[in-house]
Structures are given as structure tokens and as C-alpha cells.
Amino acid sequence: MILLLAGTMEARNLAGMLAQSGIDCIASLAGVTESPAPYPVETRVGGFGGAEGFEAFLDAQEITAVIDATHPFATEITRRTAKICAARGLPYLRFERREWRSRQGDAWHEAADIADLARIIPPRQRIFLATGRQTVDQMGHLEHAYIWARVVDAPSEPFPLENGAWVVGRPPFSQAAEEALFAELRPDWLVVKNAGGASGRAKLDAARALGMSVAMIARPPAPEGITRREDVLDALEWAEAHA
């Protein structure tokens, strides 16, 4: 049985291929998003209860290999999983989509991390955040005029910053929809993490079309010594070898 740590479009695509190939697989979702789209394999939702709970799950389900297809910025999950699998001698694959690359006409400015945004974005700017709900309260160091933060599910809590608001929307978004949203809100900057993936590219294409500046937060490095794949067919081939 293969454990697929999921939550991304790439994970869902791989799950479909695993099902079509007849490979026993169970997908695990963290439970951050309400009513996620269904997976074509057995699926569990929620955390494991720390490292001990994760190891107990591996034993109970007789997991023979782990594919970590979580978000490229889910560093804590990746580090913990890679460490546990290495200690147990359990085959582990990090399946991670390719990074975005700038193209002609893009006005990208790379930030090392969230703290580095203050170096890049001038004071009194209108900012559109597409970095996830968990990062919003880390933006207090920015001398912004206003911040919009996009989330999948409407939060029950008020916006954590003085000048700002939530924007609720469920991906995927088209370039036309993104352009219409940016034209309505008129942000000066788009802030994104370099998560990669075709489904998230529309906001970057919209920013280029409208001449918006983009603050691109660099992807954190992966743990050393792990096996990585960026193509879904390569990940499927690895799964077939370890099923």
C-alpha cells in the first residue's frame, strides 16, 4: 500500500493514474480546505497526531512506500516525513511541481522569504496576497496602504491587519477572471510563493498583462539526499517500482 500525502492538483492527477494502474493507494489530506474535491482512491482527512501517530499509521496500514505530493512550501511535513521514512528504511519520494520562471514582460522581484518582502515593496502600496491564510498575520511588517488576501473558504475571524480584507475564491482561476479582479481592486503588487504549477499561473499572466509588480517568494530548499520527481509519469513509474 502506498501512502500519498496529497492536497495539490498534482497529487490528485497522480492518484488517478495510480487508480488506473491498479496500485493500492491511500491519499491523506491535511483537512485545511473545507469540502475538497474527491480523490479516486481511498482518502483520509486530518492530521496524524505528530510523528508517533504518523508511524502508527504506517504500521497499521502496512505502508510500503510514501509519496509526498504536498504543497512545495509545506516544509515541516516534508522534513518530518523524509526523516521518518529514512529511519525506517521506507521508500520515500518527493513529487514536486516545477518552479515558475519569469517571461518577457514580467515585472518579478524575488524575495528570500516573507520577511524580505519589506525590502522589495515600497511603503503605502496596495497589495494582493495569494500566499494562503496562514501567512496573513506575518505581513504586519509591511508599511502597506491596503492588503487583500485570497482564501478558499470564508474565514470566521476578522481580517488580522488594520487595513485589509479577505477575498474568497476557489481555484482554478482563468486569466480573464484574474484580470477582472485586479482591474476592480487595483493593487500595485501581487505577492505569491513560487509554488509552480499550471493551475496557478493565471494570476501571473494577468499581472503581466496589467503591468503589475510581482513579489515572488523563493521556494525553500528540499531536504538533502531525498528522491525527487517533477513529472507525473516519472512519479507513476517510481510508484510502480515500489508498489
Rank of each mutant, 00 (worst) to 15 (best):
I226W: 02
K193Q: 09
A82Y: 02
A209W: 06
L14H: 04
V192F: 11
A145R: 10
P187I: 07
L233A: 12
G16M: 01
S102P: 13
Q61H: 15
Y146E: 12
L129W: 01
P72N: 05
E76G: 13
E230N: 14
E184R: 12
S199L: 10
A130P: 05
Q20M: 12
P40G: 02
Q125N: 09
L29I: 08
Q104A: 15
V168I: 13
W166M: 08
K193S: 08
A51F: 06
G49I: 09
A118L: 10
Q134D: 13
T135F: 15
L190Q: 02
N13H: 15
V191G: 02
A60E: 07
Q134G: 09
A30S: 11
G16L: 04
E178Y: 07
T227E: 10
T78D: 07
V191R: 00
A177M: 15
M216S: 06
G31V: 02
S156P: 12
A37D: 11
V151I: 06
I23R: 05
W100Q: 09
Q20A: 14
S199H: 09
A218F: 15
L58V: 05
P91S: 02
R88F: 06
R12M: 05
A65D: 07
A222N: 12
R228C: 14
V151G: 02
V151P: 00
N194Y: 14
R94W: 02
L236R: 00
F54I: 03
I23T: 05
G200Q: 09
L185R: 14
A56P: 11
P91G: 05
R94G: 03
G7Q: 00
Q125T: 12
P220D: 07
R98T: 15
A82F: 03
E55H: 06
T33H: 06
M139S: 06
V168G: 06
T131H: 01
P221I: 09
P223W: 06
R150Y: 11
V191I: 14
V152T: 06
I217P: 02
P223G: 10
C25Y: 00
T70L: 07
R186D: 12
K203F: 08
R201E: 15
D188E: 13
I2N: 03
D234V: 09
D153M: 08
A15H: 06
T227A: 11
R103S: 13
N194Q: 13
I114P: 00
T70K: 02
V151E: 04
D153I: 05
T75F: 13
A222L: 15
P158R: 01
V41H: 00
M139V: 09
P187A: 07
Y39T: 03
E55M: 08
G140W: 06
R119F: 11
A195T: 14
G132R: 02
A112T: 10
A86G: 12
D188F: 05
P220R: 02
P158I: 04
R79S: 10
A235E: 00
A27N: 01
D68Y: 04
P91F: 07
N13S: 15
L190R: 04
V66N: 04
G89P: 08
A118D: 11
D68I: 04
V66T: 02
F128D: 03
E99Q: 14
A130D: 03
A218H: 14
V32T: 13
A239Q: 00
T43C: 08
G225F: 03
I217F: 07
S199F: 13
T70I: 05
E143H: 13
R219N: 11
F57K: 01
I147S: 01
P123D: 10
G16Y: 03
Y92H: 06
A207F: 04
F54D: 01
I226F: 04
